[in-house]
Design a protein around this nucleic acid. Structure first.
Lengths: 332, 332
DNA sequence: CTGAAAGCGCTTACAG
DNA sequence: CTGAAAGCGCTTACAG
């Protein structure tokens, strides 16, 4: 049985309240009492129970981090950013993996609330809107990563997707490409997806370049396999295309494979650019040029924003946009 | 302010205790009262506070998961296994990332104890022994992943490293290789490392094959770059080597690059086998043959073992060994 | 089948 | 500078 505050108080011959004051460094205390209490704490190896404290302060120093799939190389970096910032502030973090299942997502959120977390950071799925609407009624504050959803008590950290697509297209055009295809990812209305497509369209337009409708190919999934298949189809049907901009690195890596099989040299016969700049980009051959998202910072800023909201609950922030850059490697 | 048990009791016109009984499905209750209480709970959107419950039951339904680096592709899979099993049992999981820093590891462990977790799963660093000895005195139960440390209240889940090395060597020998080098990873006494080297030595011996001392090359780090450099040196100094067994996939991928630069075809001029079978193995070209570790299951079994210990605290288990297999792809 | 009392380990006003 | 009382939201014996 670990020692309690009462144990310390009895052994030191003071009241519980005095021990509490020493532990929390609040109020004036005679130096002598303080020392004696501190010694007793040391001797008994006393540590305050955060559970008991949480019950009375309604403040647990814990938060929840909810995402679809920690196995996806994008997420661990975000998690690390959250964890590092949380640790600085002496918060502990519950990690929850929903597997992209909406029902489980809602259960998870409620379970976190039951555990008394002070706030939640969530990277929603494209179709989480209903869950968020339901949940935000009973729980705040919330920080959303890469998700458009305005609500009091809710903050958003969003990657500048349009800028990323624009950087990719500008670079390709600068290299002399005019017929640029896009692997646009799973056909859903995720704002990540919509905005990357939008950025691509706008950039092309800005350069006075036309886009054939079927240069933009949605994929069944955002995997290497799908990138591979889709690129095969795209380049067979439209051999005039000399560059491919992919929704993410996995699709881009699939495109790399397809070009190899089609005997098209990368980047000379076909340039390829990915998105996210995961660690996979440096491992493939040729290495992948990719739009770099500072995933660690995404998590770090999300936690930082949550801490701000925890301090000043009134805080109603407009979305924070995170800039991206283009990391140039061999594939383009 | 969320509704409390007292709110429900008052509104339903019963005692707090009766509400508690309904919520916890314990004791006999007249069907009519039960229904009325349930209705009130629904109406008020009441959810029991797990914090309050934890304080009295000394049982929080939370555990801690401690690791060095969630960014390393090995760990997210383990985490997923832990999370899935935890969720089945309605446990929530605190994730802690130590960055391999021993001081932070200890602080993290103590912070988890302060938060009242029921148990902890830790993937220790090679030099965590002192921390574990200190911490286990005040906190149990503990489950260690891939770490040798016998103690009451401590269980271990360990990958069968020797078997993995043996599978790799057996396969290479079967393919006609006799001079097999090894990239043995960072020179530290981690049991993973020691046992993979041991397995390699034993398997070679078993086939009657000699090993020159400098066929086993430690690396500065376990990264692609180090695998790259080390393989360059190894193959320049010992061109007779026709196969390389690497401590992990990253080193093996570095070896792949080195062979390419040296003009040695993989697998014909030099076969390469990695360890862990991370998702990187399928992405490189040629794809990497690797000793498959069921990382998800490693986490799943760890959580399972922790749950067992939580139910029967006496449980003093011997280490659980997880078998591995060889996933054959193009590199060997 | 239901309830009043005590207590989990702390902190928060309120006194002195 | 220090303490006694009440209470955070529950559960655990103990009664009836």
């Amino acid at each position: 049985m670990p020692a309690t505050m009462r144990d310390v108080a009895e052994k030191a011959g003071v009241s519980i309240k005095t021990v509490s004051r020493v532990v929390n460094k609040q109020g004036e205390i005679s130096e002598e009492t303080r020392r004696r209490v501190l010694q007793t704490i040391e001797a008994l190896g006393y540590r305050p129970s955060l559970v008991a404290r949480a019950l009375v302060t309604q403040h647990s120093c814990t938060i929840g981090l909810v995402m679809a799939d920690i196995s996806n190389p994008f997420f661990p970096e975000v998690a690390r950013g959250v964890l590092d910032r949380a640790q600085q502030a002496e918060y502990n973090v519950f990690l929850c993996n929903t597997g992209g299942n909406l029902q489980q997502e809602l259960q998870t959120l409620e379970s976190l609330a039951d555990h008394g977390v002070d706030g939640i950071i969530i990277i929603p799925s494209y179709d989480s809107a209903q869950n968020l609407r339901t949940f935000v009624k009973t729980f705040q504050p919330l920080v959303l990563v890469n998700y458009q959803f305005e609500h009091p008590g809710v903050s958003q950290i969003i990657v500048n997707n349009e800028q990323g697509a624009k950087l990719a297209v500008d670079y390709l055009v600068d290299k002399g490409h005019q017929k640029i295809g896009m692997l646009s990812g799973v056909q859903n209305p995720s704002s990540n997806r919509v905005r990357r497509i939008l950025g691509y369209r706008q950039a092309m337009k800005h350069h006075g370049l036309a886009i054939a409708d079927d240069w933009i190919v949605p994929t069944r999934d955002s995997t290497v396999e799908c990138g591979h298949e889709s690129t095969h189809r795209l380049l067979s049907k439209h051999p005039e295309i000399t560059a491919v901009f992919a929704y993410n690195d996995l699709l881009a890596i699939g495109a790399l494979k397809a070009c190899q099989e089609l005997g098209r040299d990368v980047p000379d016969d076909c340039a390829i650019i990915g998105f996210d700049d995961t660690h996979l980009a440096t491992i493939v051959n040729p290495t992948l040029t990719s739009v770099r998202v500072d995933k660690y910072n995404l998590g770090y800023q999300a936690m930082n924003q949550l801490l701000t909201m925890l301090q000043t609950p009134s805080e109603s922030s407009s979305p924070i946009h995170l800039d991206v850059e283009l990391t140039i490697r061999q594939s383009a």
